[in-house]
Nucleic acid binder design. Structure first.
Length: 940
RNA sequence: GCAGGGGUGGCUGAGGUGGUCAAAGGCGCCGGGCUUAAGAUCCGGUCCCGUACGGGUUCGUGGGUUCGUAUCCCACCCCCUGCACCA
C-alpha cells in the first residue's frame, strides 16, 4: 500500500488532531511543563514566509517536547490592535474592527493549513474587550502605584501617523512604522515609569538565556551610567544648575557650563538681557529642527554665552554659562559641566569659542602637569593642578570618589546613576487601541475609571481622518467624574499597542477568565515561557516592555515571576534574490530584473535580500503548500538553515525536499515488502537506530533543528540503503525501525508521520504519542556498528588506491590481498595512547618506546623511525571512537574476513584475501604501509 | 567612534574545548548501475600533483605559540547589526 501525497490528506489529519483535542494544554501535575511561544503576530491578511519559518520552528519544539513527555502549552493569538487596520479603514472607508476580523479569519485559515499544533482554544486577541479591559485595569493600578503619570513634556510627534511615539519607536530620527519625520512637540501625555525598573531590567539579563546581541542591545538601550550629579550655584540668582557627569574626577577642569537651549533656566537667565536675542535665535533654530536633522547638525557645535556665571562648587570660581546646540534637554539634567581638557566634545567647543582649556589630569604618572593639551585627553589619568589640597595624584575611581566625597560634604553633589531609558510614553492619538481609562474632572483632575465600570469600550460612532477619532464621539466623551459626580470628559488617547503584547503570554495561561486577568496559580505554574521564538526586531521594544510589565504585575502581587521569557531564539530572515547594482550598492524591485541600473545604467546583478513586499522578492506560502504540501515547506524551511541564520529561498531546494518527502512516503511500503530472514545486519540496524535517536535528541535539546531534520529525513534513508546493500532484508526489523523513525519525522513533518503510523497499524495518532525509550546499545550492536564503519572507511580508501594500482598493473585488477597492520603496530599504538592519556608529553614517548619489547633487537631503528614518522601523527588523528576500537578486542582480520565477499563485490574483484601483516600468511612484503584500522591493499 | 556578530572549497554552509579536517550536509557538476529512453531512485567521484595507499597547497591578511592549529594569542583589512557628540 503506497501512500501518495495529496493536499487533502494533510487536512484530514489536521481535522483528526482537532477532533482528538490533542493539543489542548492541561497541567496534570505529574509531567514537567513546557511553555513554547512565538511572538504575538499582527494579523495581516496573509501569512508570509517569515511566519512560516517562525511557526515551523516553534511547532517542532512543541511537538518534540510533547513527544518527550512534557505538558506543553503552545498557544496562538493575535496582536490585533494597531495602526495598519485603522489606516486601511480610512482608505477603504470601512471600520478597523471589520477589517481586523476579516484579516484574522484569513490568516488563521492559512496558519491552520500548515498543521501547527496550537491550542486554539486559548486564542487571545487584543481588540477583544475581554482582553483589553485588563490593560485598563492594570493602568488604573499603575496610577495608584505612581507608575503611570500624566506629564506635560516635549514628546516625539509623527505627523504622518498623527500620533506621538515612545523614544524606542524613533529610529534614526524617523518613525519606526512609517519612516516619516518626527518632530518635538510639547504635550500632556501619559508615561509609565520604566526607569524605576531599570536596574532590575539590567540585572535580569544575567539570569535569562537571551542571545548575546539581544542582551547587548538591551543594555545599550537601558544605558546605565554611573557618575555624579553636581550642583552649580548661579551668581546673583536663587536658581541652581544641576549637571550629570560620569567624570567627576575632571571637575577642576570645568571652564564653562553648558545648558541645552531648551533648558528652562536658559530662557529665564537671559530674559531682558542683551544675550536674549542670540539665545532666542539658537532656541528657535534647534526646536524647529527634527531630531534627525538636529543630530546630524550636532557636529557643528554652536552656542551662545548667557552672560551669567555659575560658581564652581568646590573652588568658588566664576564660570561662564553657555547654551549649546549639542546638549540634549532630555538626557541627564539637560546641562553639562564642560571640561575641554578631557572631553573631546567640550574641547571642540572651547576651541571654536576661545574658552580656556585646563589640564587637570596627566596620562602618565608624574608627567608634566603643565604640558599643553593638543587634543582632549579623555582617558583616566592622575589628577594634577587641583586648586585644593589632597587630590593631586589620585587616579580613576579613587579620584572620582574623592571629588564626590568633597561635594557631598559641601552638600553640592552626590553619586548617582543615570539611565538612558526614559519613561515609556504610552498614549497615542489614535483610535484602534485600548482607551486609557481616565475621566478628566474640573475639580478632581485625572480620575481612573473604577474597576466596576471597566472595560471602557471603543465607541463605534467615530469619524476617521480628522485627528483623534475618539474626539469625534460625543457619546464617548461625556462622562461624569467617578469621584465627585461632576460632569467630566473622558480621556481620548488610547494605549500604545505594545501594551497588548506586554502580558499576553500571561493571559494565555488562563485565557477565558472573566473574573481575573489570570489566575495567579495558573500563571505561576506555566510561566515562564521556556522557549520564545521571534524576530530580532523586537529586541529593544517588545522585549523590554514585556519584561518591565511582568515585573510590574509581579509587584502588584499578581504572580511570582521575575522574567517572562527564559530562552529566546531569534530566527533569521527569509531572503530571496533581488536585482542589485554592484557599483551603486543598491537593491531594486524585482520588476527591474534584467534591466540596467536606473542610477548608473550598469547591468544589474543579483543579491539575496530580505523577502519583502516592497522589493517584490516574495514567495507565497499558500501557493507552495498547494503545490508541495505543508510538510515539504516545513522540511525545506527547517533544513535550509539553522533557525538563527538567514536563509535563502530556493525553488530547486524546495523541489529537492519534495523528492525526499516522496521517497519517505514510499518508505513503509518498501521496507515492509522485505521478505528475508533475520540476518547479521539486523543487529547493525538496531544499533544504528539507537545511535540516530540519540543524536536526534541531543540535536533537539539544543534546538539544532537543522541537524535534527537532517538525521530524521536524510541520514536514516542512507542507513536503510546501507542495510539493504549489505544484504539486510528482514521485514520484522523494518516495523521496529519505522515506528521509532515515525516519531522523529513527526516533529517537522507531522502529516507524513501520521500516514506512517496508520500504515504501521498503530493505534491513535502519533502526534499524541510519546516516543518509547530504547535500550542502550548492546555490545553485539556496537561490534556490528564498528565493523561496518571500518569496512566502509576501508572501502573508501581501497577505491582510491585501485585507480593508481591499475595504472601499475596495466589492466583491471581481479583480486586483492588486504594486509592488516602487524600486531606490534597495534601494541605500539595502544601503549602510546595510554601514555598520552596519562598526560605524557609526545616528545618523551621515545624513551618509553625504547624500553618496549617490540623495540628490541635488530628492528629497533626501524621501529623508532616508524614511531616518529608515521605513528606519532596518526596517534592524534584517531577520534575517540577509533581509540576505543584500537584498544578493544576487535579482530581486524576476522572482521574483514567476515565481509570479504562484500568487499570483493564492491571493488569488482573475484577474490579478496585478508592476512595479518608480517605473519606466515603474508607473502606480499607490503605490510609497511598498514596501520591499525587502516590496512594496506595489494591488487593483482 | 563604541558594542555585538561574522569572513571556510564552484555556490551554500557545518565545525571552531588545538590532533577525529582536504574539512559534514545541501546545491551544482562528472562517471556508473537500473531503464527501450527520459525522469526518479541507487552507487561512486568532485583542491592540485602522483604508475600502489604518497606528496603539495588551502578555511580574510600578516605575525606568534606548539611536536601539531580552520580551531589558541597579537596586529591589520573587510562585511553585517545596533547605539551614537549620552555629559
Amino acid at each position: 500500500m503506497s501512500i501518495l501525497f495529496s493536499p487533502d490528506s494533510e487536512q484530514i489529519w489536521q481535522r483528526k488532531w482537532n477532533e482528538a483535542k490533542l493539543f489542548e494544554s492541561n497541567l496534570n501535575g505529574d509531567k514537567p511543563k513546557f511553555y513554547c511561544l512565538e511572538m504575538y503576530p499582527y494579523p495581516s491578511g496573509k501569512m508570509h514566509m517569515g511566519h512560516v519559518r517562525n511557526y515551523s520552528i516553534g511547532d517542532a519544539v512543541a511537538r518534540y517536547k510533547r513527544m518527550m513527555g512534557f505538558d506543553v502549552l503552545y498557544p496562538m493569538g493575535f496582536d490585533s490592535f494597531g495602526m495598519p487596520a485603522e489606516n486601511a479603514a480610512i482608505k477603504e472607508n470601512a471600520h478597523p474592527h471589520e477589517i481586523t476580523e476579516r484579516n484574522m479569519a484569513s490568516i488563521t485559515d492559512q496558519i491552520k493549513r500548515m498543521g501547527f499544533s496550537y491550542d486554539w482554544k486559548r486564542q487571545v486577541k487584543s481588540h477583544d474587550p475581554r482582553y483589553y479591559r485588563w490593560n485598563q485595569w492594570f493602568f488604573t493600578k499603575f496610577m495608584e502605584m505612581g507608575l503611570a503619570t500624566q506629564q506635560f513634556a516635549p514628546v516625539n510627534w509623527c505627523s504622518q501617523c498623527e500620533t506621538v511615539l515612545a523614544n524606542e519607536q524613533v529610529k534614526a530620527g524617523r518613525c519606526w512604522r512609517c519612516n516619516g519625520p518626527v518632530s518635538q512637540e510639547e504635550m500632556n501625555q501619559w508615561f509609565l515609569d520604566i526607569p524605576s525598573y531599570a536596574q532590575e531590567l539590567v540585572d535580569g539579563l544575567d539570569t535569562i538565556d537571551f542571545p548575546e546581541n539581544v542582551k547587548a542591545l538591551q543594555r545599550d538601550w537601558i544605558g546605565r551610567s554611573e557618575g555624579a550629579e553636581i550642583t552649580f550655584a548661579i551668581e546673583g540668582r536663587e536658581e541652581e544648575i544641576k549637571v550629570f557627569t560620569t567624570r567627576p574626577d575632571t571637575l577642576f577642569g570645568t571652564t564653562f557650563v553648558t545648558l541645552a537651549p531648551e533648558h528652562p533656566l536658559a530662557g529665564s537667565l537671559v530674559k531682558g538681557t542683551p544675550q536674549e536675542e542670540a539665545w532666542q535665535h539658537l532656541y528657535d533654530e534647534v526646536s524647529a529642527m527634527s531630531e534627525f536633522d538636529r543630530i546630524k547638525n550636532m557636529n557643528k557645535k554652536r552656542g551662545v554665552p548667557l552672560g551669567v556665571h555659575a560658581i564652581h562648587p568646590l573652588t568658588g570660581e566664576r564660570i561662564p554659562i553657555w547654551a549649546g546646540n549639542f546638549v540634549i534637554a532630555s538626557y541627564g539634567t539637560g546641562a553639562v559641566m564642560a571640561v575641554p581638557g578631557h572631553d573631546e566634545r567640550d574641547f571642540d567647543f572651547a576651541k571654536s569659542y576661545d574658552i580656556p582649556i585646563r589640564r587637570v589630569l596627566v596620562m602618565k604618572e608624574g608627567a608634566d602637569a603643565d604640558a599643553e593639551l593638543k587634543r582632549a585627553e579623555s582617558d583616566f589619568g592622575w589628577m594634577v593642578n587641583s586648586p585644593i589640597e589632597g587630590f593631586d595624584g589620585l587616579y580613576g575611581d579613587e579620584a572620582k570618589s574623592a571629588v564626590i566625597n568633597a561635594l557631598t560634604a559641601k552638600n553640592a553633589g552626590s553619586q548617582t546613576i543615570n539611565w538612558k531609558i526614559r519613561p515609556w510614553l504610552v498614549s497615542r492619538q489614535r483610535y484602534w487601541g485600548t482607551p486609557i481609562p481616565v475621566i478628566h474632572c474640573g475639580s478632581c483632575g485625572a480620575v481612573p475609571v473604577p474597576e466596576a465600570d471597566l472595560p471602557v469600550e471603543l465607541p463605534r460612532d467615530v469619524t476617521f481622518g480628522e485627528g483623534n477619532p475618539l474626539e469625534t464621539s460625543a457619546s464617548f466623551l461625556a462622562a461624569d467624574c467617578p469621584t465627585c459626580g461632576e460632569e467630566g470628559r473622558r480621556e481620548t488617547d488610547t494605549m500604545d499597542t505594545f501594551v497588548d503584547s506586554s502580558w499576553y503570554f500571561l493571559r494565555f495561561t488562563d485565557p477565558l477568565n472573566d473574573e481575573l486577568c489570570f489566575d495567579s496559580a495558573k500563571a505561576n505554574q506555566w510561566m515562564n515561557v521556556d522557549f520564545y521564538c521571534g524576530g530580532i526586531e523586537h529586541a529593544q521594544m517588545h522585549l523590554i516592555y514585556a519584561r518591565f510589565w511582568t515585573k510590574a504585575l509581579r509587584d502588584l502581587g499578581l504572580h511570582d515571576i521575575d522574567e517572562p521569557f527564559n530562552e529566546l531564539l531569534c530566527q533569521g530572515m527569509v531572503n530571496m534574490a533581488a536585482p542589485w547594482c554592484e557599483s551603486c550598492g543598491l537593491t531594486f524591485t524585482v520588476d527591474l530584473a534584467g534591466a540596467p541600473c536606473p542610477q548608473c545604467n550598469a547591468v544589474l546583478g543579483e543579491r539575496s535580500a530580505k523577502m519583502s513586499k516592497s522589493t517584490g522578492n516574495t514567495v507565497s506560502p499558500e501557493d507552495m503548500i498547494e503545490q508541495y504540501g505543508a510538510d515539504t515547506v516545513r522540511l525545506f524551511i527547517l533544513f535550509a538553515a539553522n533557525p538563527t541564520a538567514g536563509m535563502d529561498w530556493s525553488d530547486t531546494a524546495l523541489e529537492a525536499n519534495y523528492k525526499v518527502m516522496m521517497q519517505l512516503y514510499s518508505m513503509p511500503e518498501r521496507m515492509q515488502s522485505w521478505d528475508g530472514p533475520a540476518g547479521p545486519m539486523d543487529v547493525w540496524f538496531e544499533g544504528r537506530l539507537k545511535q540516530r535517536v540519540e543524536e536526534f535528541q541531543s540535536a533537539m535539546d539544543v534546538y539544532d533543528l537543522r541537524r535534527a531534520v537532517e538525521l530524521s529525513h536524510y541520514e536514516l534513508v542512507k542507513d536503510v540503503n546501507w542495510y539493504t546493500r549489505r544484504g539486510g532484508n528482514n521485514a520484522e526489523i523494518a516495523s521496529k525501525i519505522l515506528r521509532h523513525w515515525a516519531h522523529m519525522l513527526s516533529i517537522s513533518t507531522p502529516h507524513i508521520a501520521e500516514e506512517w503510523w496508520a500504515v504501521l497499524g498503530m493505534d491513535g495518532l502519533i502526534s499524541g504519542a510519546e516516543m518509547p525509550q530504547l535500550d542502550p546499545i548492546s555490545p553485539a550492536e556496537q561490534t556490528a556498528l564498528d565493523g561496518e564503519t571500518t569496512t566502509r572507511s576501508f572501502l573508501e580508501n581501497a577505491r582510491k588506491i585501485k585507480d593508481v594500482a591499475e595504472r601499475h598493473l596495466d589492466g583491471p585488477a581481479t583480486s586483492a590481498t588486504i594486509i592488516v597492520a602487524p600486531t606490534w603496530k597495534r601494541e605500539l599504538a595502544v601503549t602510546a595512547l595510554e601514555f598520552l592519556e596519562q598526560g605524557g608529553n609526545p616528545k618523551q614517548f621515545i624513551g618509553v618506546l625504547s624500553k618496549m619489547e617490540i623495540a628490541q633487537g635488530e628492528r629497533k631503528g626501524e621501529i623508532m623511525g616508524f614511531w616518529g614518522k608515521k605513528m606519532l601523527p596518526q596517534v592524534f588523528k584517531w577520534d575517540d571512537e577509533s581509540r576505543i576500537l584500537i584498544r578493544s578486542t576487535l579482530d581486524e582480520v576476522e572482521s574483514l574476513r567476515l565481509r570479504s565477499s562484500f568487499i570483493a563485490e564492491e571493488l569488482g574483484l573475484s577474490t579478496v584475501h585478508v592476512v595479518l601483516g608480517e605473519s606466515e600468511d603474508d607473502d606480499t612484503g607490503r605490510a609497511g604501509g598498514a596501520m591499525p584500522l587502516s590496512p594496506s591493499v595489494v591488487y593483482a
